[in-house]
Nucleic acid binder design. Structure first.
Length: 356
DNA sequence: AAAAAAAACAACCGCAGTCGA
DNA sequence: CTCGACTGCGGTTGTTTTTTT
């Protein structure tokens, strides 16, 4: 049969850790090493759940953590990585030595997510080549098994990777950058490094263009903020799925999506790359009327859909022709609407995004 | 200076793949 | 082969701190 429960919830302390508890945990791990979280609280004399001990250690007590003072450079990197990877905090954290997924997630939720929608951050260069190399290596890493990895979405798979946290650096020089962030294998069959570079640079390209024409907002979010690329290519929940690229002369309603496109993204999101895989956030799709001359291969279930297709779609897309309606239901091509007058809600509320 | 609001931080929860019994 | 603990992850909530009124 299985193992004993990790802990009895009753009688366990919760809430903030005291300095004394921290010292006990640090001392214990120094003496016995990480792992065995289930037995750790009992052995160490802590009235905490093993899960809580693990979290405390990983996020706050490890020596290699920086804690706070996230630099503008780090923020910029987080923004770019998030644009490319979505809410894959552990993967993002793996590129920021000394930072935890929790810290980055908190930073994003409390600060960056608000600032990014303004699309007013400085236009910098794209991600450092080393980061791109690392991510490309992750994506090129063959998946040893076809099974999903060890977490619900994309976590480490086997015992080796779980028990011995490794990073991309392990492949290079055996010097882990961030020992407790875990290597993840990503789909291999449809995303080249060039593609990744293109994805990561798309936002900046649009930003650069926007610098010359301030009113050229592109798709916007529920609050009128400009959507990042990730909002359109890696929706994290069904409510964002309306932000998919559209073909010209098309009105897209929720659910009117490209199945292959969504499956591809589902593969990226979950670690599955095979066609036809589904994800929990993938609802029943109904393909809308499409202009096959401008959206080649997307409507054919049998055609191989790749990230390169996505890039073609994104790079060819005319952002000026795509906005979200105030009722948050549809994306509408403005030449379908016929007039920019219909879109005045975009800039009527204070002009945060520039006047037209 | 006090109260209220906003932001930041810390911790918990539940999901889902892995793997030992 | 099945069951269920272990684990890592992302989402969410609760608490504390800072800022604004």
């Amino acid at each position: 049969m299985g193992r004993a429960p990790c802990c009895q919830k009753v009688g366990l302390k919760r809430g903030r850790w005291t300095a004394e508890e921290d010292q006990i945990l640090i001392k214990y791990i120094q003496d016995h090493g990480e792992g065995s979280w289930r037995s750790l609280p009992k052995n160490a004399g802590l009235m905490r759940c093993g899960k809580s001990c693990r979290l405390r250690w990983i996020n706050y007590l490890r020596k290699d953590l920086k804690r706070g003072n996230i630099s503008p450079q780090e923020e910029d990197l987080i923004i770019k990585l998030h644009a490319a990877l979505g809410n894959r905090w552990s993967l993002i954290a793996s590129q920021l030595p000394g930072r935890t997924d929790n810290e980055i997630k908190n930073r994003w939720n409390s600060h960056l997510s608000r600032s990014i929608t303004s699309w007013r951050r400085p236009v910098n260069d794209t991600l450092p080549q080393q980061i791109l190399d690392n991510l490309a290596k992750l994506m090129a890493k063959p998946n040893p098994s076809t099974k999903k990895k060890g977490s619900k979405k994309n976590g480490p798979a086997n015992k080796e990777t779980r028990d011995k946290p490794v990073t991309l650096e392990d492949d290079n020089n055996d010097k882990p950058q961030t020992p407790d962030v875990h290597k993840e294998s990503l789909p291999t069959n449809s995303c080249s490094q060039q593609s990744l570079q293109s994805i990561l640079s798309l936002e900046d390209r649009y930003e650069a263009e926007e610098g010359e024409m301030d009113m050229d907002l592109g798709p916007v979010d529920d609050y009128g903020g400009v959507l990042s690329l990730s909002d359109m290519v890696t929706p994290s929940d069904p409510s964002t799925m309306m932000h998919q690229p559209l073909s010209p002369n098309e009105i897209l309603s929720p659910g009117a999506l490209y199945p292959e496109f969504m499956n591809e993204l589902a593969g990226l999101s979950t670690g599955h790359a095979e066609m036809g895989s589904t994800s929990s956030w993938l609802p029943n799709c109904s393909t809308s009327t499409m202009d096959n001359t401008t959206q080649p291969s997307l409507s054919s279930p049998s055609s191989p859909f790749t990230i390169d297709h996505l890039l073609n779609i994104s790079s060819d897309w005319n952002w000026e022709d795509c906005v979200q309606t105030p009722n948050d239901q549809d994306l509408i091509m403005n030449h379908e609407v016929g007039s920019f007058d219909n879109l005045s809600w975009l800039w009527d509320d204070g002009g945060e995004f520039g006047a037209v």
